[in-house]
């Protein structure tokens, strides 16, 4: 998918037709509509407060300054928020990749009693909206004493039904001979999982990993529910807090949003196709 291998049917024959020019202009307009707000945001983060608030907005910063960044990081620990998000999202991603692939292996390559029943039980949880479980989960985490803790951010998201579904589907395509050969040679199941199944599932794992990481990195509702200590905030929660507590300091708010957006856009620019494929395959949001 999206590998540019096949030429689209309606491609021009290489000559610059009128139609081609119009199409390109429309495409450029759409692309600009999607991307110009980000450019405007990044540029604004380098403008002094008065310039942002002027009634005739500028695009290019007239009084270029990095003051917003120094003020922001002295008001709120944004670097800490960034690291919190990176840590929590990485752990959640690794744990989900591990549990999904292990369960995927079991469902794909083993026969046991009630297999399909267990599978359907897990899969049916995909239809439960987070809004339904969020309050009971909140009270459960509170009773476990995990409010305001990293553990509380990770624990509810260690198993992912879609991940199990995806990995089972993928691993069913791995030839059974490979698994049997390993077993004949006396390899343990964990060895087969780790040395045969995982290396052969890298495509599915990377797609799932991209999806889970982005979803975890961007999530706001759960951190918002359980985190009240400033130093434990994730980046989206930091940005939201900034918008509430410093509502009138638009220079700081815009700068915070820039910090939240630019790293992920750089990552996206570096691996556009992998990320697009991961999100499209998994049907994020």
């Amino acid at each position: 998918m999206f590998d540019n291998g096949s030429a689209p049917a309606t491609m021009g024959k290489g000559k610059l037709s009128f139609e081609r020019v119009v199409l390109t202009l429309v495409m450029l307009a759409v692309a600009a509509g999607m991307f110009v707000p980000f450019i405007w945001m990044v540029l604004s983060s380098f403008k002094p407060y008065q310039e942002i608030l002027s009634l005739k907005p500028t695009l290019w910063p007239q009084g270029f300054t990095v003051g917003n960044y120094t003020t922001l990081t002295s008001e709120l620990p944004f670097l800490r928020y960034f690291l919190n998000s990176a840590g929590v999202s990485s752990v959640v991603t690794l744990v989900i990749l591990f549990t999904s692939s292990l369960c995927g292996y079991v469902f794909a390559k083993f026969d046991f009693a009630y297999k399909e029943l267990f599978f359907m039980t897990i899969i049916s949880s995909m239809m439960v909206p987070f809004a339904v479980v969020v309050l009971p989960l909140y009270f459960l985490i509170a009773r476990l004493g995990m409010l305001d803790s990293y553990l509380g951010l990770v624990i509810p998201f260690m198993v992912n039904a879609f991940g199990i579904f995806l990995m089972r589907q993928f691993m069913e395509g791995v030839p059974g001979d490979l698994v049997d050969a390993g077993r004949v040679d006396g390899a343990g199941e964990m060895w087969i999982y780790w040395r045969i199944m995982l290396p052969l599932s890298l495509n599915a794992l990377s797609a799932l990993g991209v999806f889970v990481f982005l979803w975890s990195w961007n999530s706001l509702w759960w951190p918002f529910m359980i985190i009240s200590k400033s130093e434990l905030r994730t980046l989206p929660l930091g940005i939201a807090t900034l918008a509430w507590e410093y509502a009138t300091r638009v220079d700081l708010v815009i700068t915070g949003a820039t910090i939240g957006v630019v790293p992920i856009l750089i990552l996206f620019a570096l691996m556009t196709r992998t990320i697009v494929r991961g999100v499209a395959l998994t049907g994020m949001k």
């Binding site: 540019n4 491609m11 495409m27 999607m34 980000f38 945001m41 990195w217 900034l242 957006v261 856009l265």
Partner: peptide, 28 residues
């Protein structure tokens, strides 16, 4: 679909808002 060599660039622009945190999009 009409673009081949430049598709990756346009795809990047069109898809960029999805990968960003909704909190940042909301603030923006």
């Amino acid at each position: 679909y009409q673009f081949r060599r430049t598709q990756r660039f346009y795809l990047f622009c069109v898809f960029a808002p999805i990968v960003c945190p909704s909190a940042a999009i909301a603030v923006l």
